[in-house]
């Protein structure tokens, strides 16, 4: 692909510099280098090259006229290349996918914007010969995201309605959010939870509702992450894909594994959901809890 050929990447940059300079007359060389993700030296080389280019004849009348000795760049006599180049297929796809996410985050909350997005996507699709199919789901809708980002900036508080899969409960918690971050394939909200009196991670896609609330006051003593680790040992009866995904600590070819977990309810539910492919060996309380739950569930069928 073109991106992997440094010579061609340079040609592309030369062509793209002209329209950018045309609409950003007087830009500092350093800023220009930053925009194009390269060094001042490279950009200066580019400008020196462009300065030699123009229409056939190549007299000063035909050549691109560049001024950059002052450290600020201006361009003249470059009308032929002045229009930004069309997006190539990959660039169009990247924007198309980003628009899909935007639309998903806005969901039904803003119809005029989602229809603008659909319109832009239609325009992009006509440029993509053999158009790929794209479907992006949002982990957090734009309204919640906006409230969370605002609270992070203002160090404000939110009441978050959250679904905990481990406890199979939906609860409201007062949270002072710190950040939204990625871990593995999930997005998390991290913040101080005044109900738990500690820092907690909330999976973004399990946030059911977000509202702004008044300041709850920060704790006086040092906040610590106090989720107690639970070490447990499992025996693997079948190393299926599901087992490897639910308990990534299990090695594909080993029959036992010692795993660090944080929530007893989560661990027993996870092992139940694996339908006997994995057996809990220790601690014995965990083993007993799983036995009791499975037995109680089975009795429902008698």
């Amino acid at each position: 692909m073109a991106k992997k050929d440094p010579g061609l990447a340079r040609t592309a940059r030369l062509l793209d510099l002209v329209p950018y300079l045309t609409t950003h007359q007087g830009i500092a060389i350093a800023d220009l280098a930053k925009t194009f993700n390269t060094t001042v030296k490279e950009i200066t080389d580019d400008l020196n090259t462009l300065w030699m280019c123009g229409l056939p004849g190549y007299t000063p009348l035909e050549l691109i006229d560049l001024e950059f000795e002052s450290g600020f760049v201006s361009i003249r006599n470059a009308e032929t290349l002045a229009a930004p180049r069309a997006l190539d297929r990959a660039e169009a796809l990247s924007v198309f996918m980003g628009l899909d996410l935007l639309s998903a985050e806005l969901s039904n909350s803003n119809e005029s914007l989602t229809s603008e997005i659909a319109n832009l996507q239609d325009q992009l699709r006509t440029q993509l010969i053999s158009a790929p199919q794209v479907q992006i789901e949002a982990s957090l809708n734009s309204e919640f995201r906006a409230l969370i980002l605002r609270a992070i900036r203002r160090r404000g508080w939110l009441e978050i309605t959250y679904h905990s899969a481990a406890n199979d409960q939906v609860t409201k918690r007062n949270v002072a959010p710190y950040e939204l971050s990625q871990s593995g394939s999930h997005e998390y909200l991290q913040g101080y939870c005044s109900s738990a009196k500690s820092i907690r991670n909330f999976r973004a896609d399990r946030i059911v509702d977000v509202i702004e609330i008044a300041d709850q006051g920060w704790p006086n003593n040092q906040v610590v992450e106090n989720e107690d680790a639970i070490r447990y040992e499992v025996k693997v009866h079948a190393a299926s894909r599901q087992v490897l995904e639910v308990l990534p600590q299990v090695a594909a070819n080993s029959s036992t594994a010692t795993i660090q977990g944080f929530s007893a309810p989560w661990i027993s539910r996870a092992i139940l959901s694996l339908a006997g492919q994995v057996e809990a060996l220790t601690p014995k309380e965990l083993r007993a809890a799983i036995h009791a739950r499975a037995k109680a569930a089975l009795e429902n069928y008698h």
Partner: peptide, 28 residues
């Protein structure tokens, strides 16, 4: 690739207008 696309889009020389938009920072 998206940065290249963004440079081409900013080369149009049009101002952006965020007043119509909710605060958004979508992330793929």
């Amino acid at each position: 690739l998206s940065q290249q696309a963004l440079r081409k889009l900013t080369s149009i020389g049009l101002d952006t207008d965020t007043s119509q938009l909710p605060v958004m920072a979508p992330k793929l």
